[in-house]
Design a protein around this nucleic acid. Sequence first.
RNA 1: GUGCCUGUAGCUCAGUCGGUAGAGCAGUAGCCUUUUAAGCUAUUGGUCGCGGGUUCGAGCCCCGCCGGGCACACCA
Length: 504
Amino acid sequence: MSDLVAARRARLAALRERGVDPFAATRYDVTAHAAELASKYAELPEQGRAEAQTWSLAGRIMSARGQGKVIFFDLHDRTGRFQLFVRQNDVGEEAFAIAKEIERGDIAGASGFVFRTKTGELSLYVRSLEVLGKSLQPLPDKWHGLQDVEKRYRRRYVDLIVNPAVRDVMIARSKIVAEMRRFIDAHGFYEVETPTLLTIAGGATARPFLTHSNALDIPLSLRIATELYLKRLIVGGMERVYEIGRIWRNEGIDRTHNPEFTMLELYAAFWDVQDMMRFNEELMAHLARSVHGTETVMYGEDAISFATPFRRMDYLGAFKEFAGIEREQLLDPDQCFALLREHGIPDSPSHAHALDKLFEKIVEPHLLQPTFVYGYPVVLSPLAKRMKDDPQLTERYELFAAHMELANAFTELNDPDDQRRRFELSIAEKESGDEEVPPPDWDFVRALEYGMPPTAGIGIGVDRLVMMLTNNASIRDILLFPLQRPLPADATDDDDDEGPAAGT
RNA sequence: GUGCCUGUAGCUCAGUCGGUAGAGCAGUAGCCUUUUAAGCUAUUGGUCGCGGGUUCGAGCCCCGCCGGGCACACCA
C-alpha cells in the first residue's frame, strides 16, 4: 500500500539525481492564470500560435499524458485548468527527461506561449518547466474524484484538489461574508470583536464548552452568543456595532448543527424591530443578488425568492390560520401542554419549550418563502422588549426560509428592572433542572442601569445562510473542516517504512 | 443517546447459495513527436474497519467494538 508512496519517492530521487530538488523553489513569477488565458485567447484561430507573448502559469499537475517525445499536462490553478504541451525538440533532452519525471499531483510552473493543438485545444507551448513541489501521496481517481464523505471531511485538502465544486462553495462562502461586511459597513456600522472566553456565557440558552485559565486559575466558558457584550457597546455609545464571529455550543451534531459555527450579530441604537426587518430583507436580497445575480435561488427542489418585501406573518395569527389555535391556548401553560398531547408531541419541560415544539410542528412546514414571523411571546424571549399594547408579547421576529430559521431579531429590552426580573425567573428554571439556562449576568443588568438607548438587534446564522445560498443540505458541506471524531489510526497513519535512505 | 443503512486494492466499485478476492482507473516496465477518462503490450498491489463466535470452510451468518451517513432525540 505504501508501494505508491515508494514509487513517488523514487521519482523524487530521480529528480534529485538530475539536479532538481522539488522542495528547493521558494517562489515563481506567475504572470497568468488558466481562466485569464482562456478568455484572452478565446479567438485564437485553429493552428494559431501567439508566439510574441510569453506567459508563466503555476499550479498542480492533474494529468500527464506522455506520448513518446511529447508530453501533455493538465495544470490546475485556482481559476481552472490549462493544458501544457512539452516537446523534446523544443526544451531539449535534459529538460524533457526531467519533465518525464513529473507526475500527477506535483506542483509545477511553466512558461511559454499560447497556441492551439491539432484538436483545437488552447494550450501553453512550454519553453521552460520548473518543479515547484513534489506530491508523495497518490491522488484519488481522476474521473470519480473522492466520494467517501468521511475522507472528504477528514482530508479536506484532498477533497479540494480533486473536487472543484467544493472549492467553489468555499469561495462562495468567502464572497457572501465579504458582501455581508460591505453592506453592513455601508450603513455606518463598526465591526468589533468581543471576548470568546467568558466567566459567564449568556445571551442564549445552550450548554457551553468549558475550559480553564491557568494564569487566573478560574474556570472559563467559550461564548454561546455575542449579544450581551455587543449591547454593552451600545450602552457605551457606539450606536451601530456588529460582529461576525465564531460561537461554540456543546450540543448535538447533525445536518444543520456543528459545535462551532459562525454568527452575525448586529445592533443599531434608535432602531426598532421594524427598522431591522427592512434592513434584514435588504441584506438578504443583496446577498442573493451578489451570489446569483438574481433574488431567486434554488434550494433543493424549491425556488426561493428573496425579492423584497418578504411576507410578514403574525406569530399568534399563524397558529390560528394553520390550526385554528387561539391565543389563550398558547399563552396559558396548561392549555399549551394540552395542545402538545392533542398534536401528538411528547411532553415538554417548560412552557417555552412547548411553544417551540408546537411552532415547529404547526407553522414551520408552511414557511417555504422568506417570511418574518412577528410577535413572539415573552416567555420565549427573555431579552426582547414587550409590545406596548400587549405585554405578553414582544417586539421580536424570526425570519424563515425553506423551513429553516435564518434570523432572529428584536427591539432590545433596555429596562434594567425588567431584565433583572427575567434573570431571576431564569434562575428558577435552572434550579428546576434546565441545564441550558445560563447563569444571570448581573454586570449586564448594571450596564442597562447606566441607560441603553432604544435599540434593535439581530442574529443571523451565517452557516445556514451559506447553505441556502449555495444549495447545500448539510452544514458540513459549507464548513471547511467540520468536527469529526478523531481516529486512533490518525496518529500512526503514515507508514514511513523506507525513509530518506531512498533518496540519493 | 436510540433506530436504520454503511465500511472490500491508492480511488471508484463488483463479489451469486458460505467454497478460499475481482474490474476500471492509478502505479510499475516497455512502445509511441498534437493527446485530453490518450492508446497498445506486460505486470505489481488485499489485516475484506477491528475482535470474538458458528462452520470442514466466513468478505458473506451471529455477537461485541470502532468510524461514517441519514432519521429521531437534543438543539437554532
